[in-house]
């Protein structure tokens, strides 16, 4: 179980706070947990992401027992791209939780976040 407790929208220039909960099973063999608020800018429906906007925090699950709770907060800059869907341009934000597991596929959970003006 990877659970995200965080708002689905945030305004530019404000703080984005939340908590991620990771269950015992998902923590097995984990060496790192990354919580990241990532922007994706695409043009013309192509896959290329032109954005370099990313805020992230890394946690070590070494000391975790049954349930790993990760409170996080990111300060969103006033110039951060808003969520936008135009004629050819699109800007989206996602909160990504990635559990890096030794010798196995990563475990992850994603959530769409709307960046408001």
């Amino acid at each position: 179980m990877i659970k995200i407790n965080a708002p689905t929208s945030v305004s530019r220039g404000s703080e984005y706070k939340g908590v991620v909960e990771i269950g015992e099973r998902e923590l097995k063999g984990a060496r790192l947990v990354e919580v990241a608020l990532c922007n994706e800018i695409t043009y013309g429906g192509k896959e290329a992401n032109y954005s370099c906007w990313k805020m992230s925090k890394k946690f070590s699950p070494k000391d975790a027992r049954s349930l790993f709770q990760l409170p996080f907060d990111f300060r969103v800059e006033g110039e951060a791209p808003v969520t936008y869907k135009g004629k050819r341009l699109s800007s989206k934000w996602k909160l990504n939780v990635n559990v890096d597991v030794v010798g196995a596929g990563d475990r992850w959970r994603r959530m769409d976040v709307i960046m408001l003006r």
Binding site: I41, Y50, S51, C52, W53, E77, E79, A80, P81, V82, Y84, L89, S91, R117
Partner: peptide, 8 residues
């Protein structure tokens, strides 16, 4: 519309 810049 607000400006959208690809890099901080």
């Amino acid at each position: 519309l607000p400006s959208i810049i690809p890099e901080p």
